[in-house]
Amino acid sequence: MSLDIPDGQFVVLVGPSGCGKSTLLRMIAGLEGITGGTIRIGERVVNNLPPSERDIAMVFQNYALYPHKTVAANMGFALRMARMPREEIANRVARAADILGLKPYLDRYPRALSGGQRQRVAMGRAIVRNPKVFLFDEPLSNLDAKLRVQMRTEIRSLHLRLKTTTVYVTHDQIEAMTMADRIVVMRDGHIAQAGAPLDLYDRPANTFVAGFIGSPSMNFLPGRIEVRASGPVFVADGGIELPLRPGGPVPQGRRVTYGLRPEHLVLGGEGSLPAQVRLVEPTGSETMAVMKLGRSDVVGVFRERVSVRDGETILVRPDPAHVHLFDPESGARLT
């Protein structure tokens, strides 16, 4: 794999567990040896440099605070190891504490802090080093949902303020979407696709990325293309016909996977098909419904209030402008 991260960019590595994203991060950090290739930070090849000389700072998932050291000592330890003068350490710690709102807690021990505060200390340890690169290894997965959203914003605004190049690992695609300048979706040690969050969302390169980015996931229906007088249509296995964007360069009879995001399923209108609702989940702002369309289960998300109950039938149709077509074998995008 090859990945070039421009200076100051916030890059999120995302993928299912075991895809190698953490390993990649640990290789950049120098905690994991590499057997081949080159890792360069700035102009410097760091393949064989120990972590402390790579000019990086890493934030661990479980914070890895030294339990027997105060917040200030935790933040200053790396600087002390670098034999920095005491005043300079104190200054840097004070500045970082200021940025993170940790001033009142500098003399406390980690066990006397809340989860969010510990997370901030972990970030403070990274900030004081003033590194070229920040590395985050799933830093928010130990926090509760509300705090996670708050810390997400804080990390983002911290990045906007410090403009330090950041590599951030997560398995949570929402985190990736909301925080990244660029998302790198990984699968089995390879890059499945890299790009801006909305590019990945709008034009996923393959079924893996399409299914991974977005929640609820994209619906996939197997079937084939038929060219009619009115234009090409998609005929799903089981018989139902779904519209395609006109002008797609797809030959008659080709087998494809038809991809449609839940929010691109519209209620009613011309060409609607009956779908039997199996499950309705209203969240207030929107309604999610799992339904049977033809032979397949599909998920739809509607901004409108849908007043159907489980088992009833509603009329839906796909928005042809947002249909994705993939090759059924390779999973690669066709259009």
């Binding site: 120098g30 905690l31 972590p51 402390s52 700072a57 661990f60 479980n62 890895a64 330890f77 190891m81």
Partner: peptide, 14 residues
Amino acid sequence: IPQELFERAHLDGA
């Protein structure tokens, strides 16, 4: 003692 603390110390240059 969590592995991360040792890695942390390693990263910190200890």
